[in-house]
């Protein structure tokens, strides 16, 4: 029942405009028939057509989706384990180091993470001969490592909010701790795991810097291809690509928001 002050409403409006004007302008320009950004050449969907014919982009997209799905799955498994360890396993030796290693990737500048992983892979190759070639596997490992931190944080907050007496009850009813994990804990944190998987997938699809470090010749992810194109300036087919991204993400998020809202108002 408290009214917002005019200053705050103004800043809110300005802030949202700041966040959304670039996105809106990209979508508008993606329908510009002219190759030059400066001129409006009339409405056209030709850049979408050209995008779908661009094999380089299609190949890169396929590789990126594969890497994203694989690394998100690994990150979800490892991150969930890490989250469980942090919340439910009490104290153990090395826990401080563990939680430090787990949360550091969240804030570490990408250039450092990327360089350090590359140097690791190079050293490993010298010592044990693996990885023979850098590409799918090295990018997947790199993405898994920083994504699992995000999953762990999401799972941790879900676990912390969860009533531990549910697990105690299962134990009291004769479940071994392992069974409790699979019968009670995991189903209850499933929403957090799904959210973590989706976030990991997006992070992987999004990453340019780390992938540029740890990829080898011939394995170009989608962001790497985009980057090599936009380095040279604004190009209309990238406008189309960005618009597709924006469309997919906003539809997905708005739908999940509506579903979530219906569920919360129903309960």
């Amino acid at each position: 029942m408290r009214r917002q002050s005019r200053l705050i409403l103004t800043v809110l409006a300005f802030g949202y405009a700041f966040l959304y004007i670039p996105l809106v302008s990209v979508v508008v320009y993606s329908f510009n028939d002219s190759r030059l950004a400066a001129v409006w050449g009339g409405f056209s969907t030709r850049w979408y057509g050209e995008l779908l014919k661009n094999e380089q982009i299609l190949d890169a997209t396929f590789l990126s989706l594969q890497i994203a799905a694989t690394s998100a799955t690994f990150a979800t498994i490892l991150g969930t384990m890490a989250g469980l360890v942090l919340v439910r396993f009490g104290r153990f030796r090395g826990k401080t180091l563990f939680s430090g290693m787990l949360t550091s990737p969240l804030v570490m500048p990408e250039v450092i993470t990327g360089l350090s992983l590359l140097l690791l892979f190079v050293t490993l190759q010298q010592l044990v001969g693996w990885p023979g070639q850098r590409g799918f596997s090295t990018i997947t490992i790199a993405h898994t490592t920083f994504s699992m931190a995000y999953v762990a944080v999401i799972v941790r907050s879900r676990l912390a909010a969860m009533d531990q007496s549910l697990e105690d009850a299962a134990m009291d009813l004769g479940c071994r701790p392992t069974r409790v994990l699979f019968d009670v804990t995991l189903p209850l944190i499933a929403p957090a795991m799904i959210a973590g998987w989706l976030l990991s997938f997006t992070l992987s699809l999004d990453d340019l810097v780390i992938a540029s470090f740890v990829s080898g010749p011939g394995s170009n992810t989608l962001p790497m291809v985009i980057f090599s194109k936009v380095k040279l300036g604004v190009t209309p087919d990238i406008n189309a690509l960005a618009s597709i991204f924006i469309l997919i993400v906003s539809t997905g998020l708005v739908i999940s928001w509506l579903l979530l809202r219906r569920r919360t108002t129903a309960s």
């Binding site: 936009v230 406008n239 960005a242």
Partner: peptide, 14 residues
């Protein structure tokens, strides 16, 4: 959730 790279790219057009 939208590619960071593409969001920065959007500013190039602006």
């Amino acid at each position: 959730w939208i590619s960071f790279l593409l969001r920065v790219y959007a500013w190039m057009g602006l």
